[in-house]
Design a binder for these strands. Structure first.
Ligand code: MN
Ligand code: MN
Ligand code: ZN
Ligand code: ZN
Lengths: 141, 141
DNA sequence: TTTACACTTGCGAATAATTCTCATAATGAA
DNA sequence: TTCATTATGAGAATTATTCGCAAGTGTAAA
């Protein structure tokens, strides 16, 4: 059992503990999400999951993603133009640059910006629950 | 002819000059957009436009909004959850806070954040073409 | 291990926002 | 006014996502 498998084991135990059933489909999707180094959409996740567990449907992928999102395990990003993209919530908070030419998604984070966002909201009497910051860019040349 | 009407006259002249026909529907929608103090969606814009010019359809509202967006006259915002919302591009650049409880949209802007966004992108070899920054908030109490 | 039952799944239908098709109507340059 | 060109309305089509339901499966108790 590798470290990665162990992570999934812990995760599924936690889910089971929360009254969520650990099915073949869910385990397969979790491992796909764990291995993903990009920001795949539901169709792409279905394709990858089918390689591990052929008995999965798109509806189940969506349902499971919503479940994991509600559990705080995955994040959903609705970038301009296409369908929603997903990633595990394991890394620390970050925002995204979208390359308008290639479609590539690059991650970045700025504590300064995050702090300014909170200050601005506070000044207006708000607490920031979550936010969206996406920079649509082109390679400088 | 009021100042506001004059603005529309200039705008329509510019459009006509660009080979775009100035129809009753377009004039009506433009005046609705000019008067809007909020961030209405297409359905709401249709409702308001019908008061001025009953012969408008939702398809035309969408078509005209896309036209105006391409011309840089209106901005489209796809906030979480609902349909796209629109506003004229007359004010200076700003971003939005969305009150999660009331749905209210509040505007703000931060030159500091804008500058940081550009610096971060530049450091990664990108130029920011446009961006999205939305703070989903709750009233502090 | 078997059982019981609540939870999940796959399938296809339903939904919602937006775009498209195409026959008809309106605009504006001449 | 004329007339080629462009815009419109109505509803069908599209796309991403969710839903309903019958059938299958995971879990924990027996
Ligand atoms: Mn990411
Ligand atoms: Mn605004
Ligand atoms: Zn952030
Ligand atoms: Zn901004």
């Amino acid at each position: 059992m590798t470290l990665a498998d162990d992570k999934i084991a812990k995760l599924t135990a936690a889910l089971r503990n929360a009254g969520v059933r650990v099915t073949r489909q869910r385990i397969a999707l979790l491992s796909v999400l764990r291995d993903a180094k990009d920001h795949p959409d539901a169709e792409e996740l279905l394709k990858r999951t089918k390689l591990i567990e052929p008995a999965v449907s798109l509806a189940t992928v969506y349902r499971t993603l919503s479940l994991l999102e509600a559990a705080g395990v995955v994040h959903r990003h609705s970038f301009e133009g296409g369908s929603a993209r997903f990633e595990t919530a394991t890394k620390k908070h970050h925002d995204h640059i979208v390359d308008l030419d290639s479609g590539e998604v690059i991650e970045f984070n700025s504590d300064k910006i995050e702090q300014l966002q909170n200050e601005i909201a506070a000044q207006l009497g708000f607490d920031v629950i979550h936010h969206r910051m996406e920079l649509y860019c082109r390679k400088r040349r």
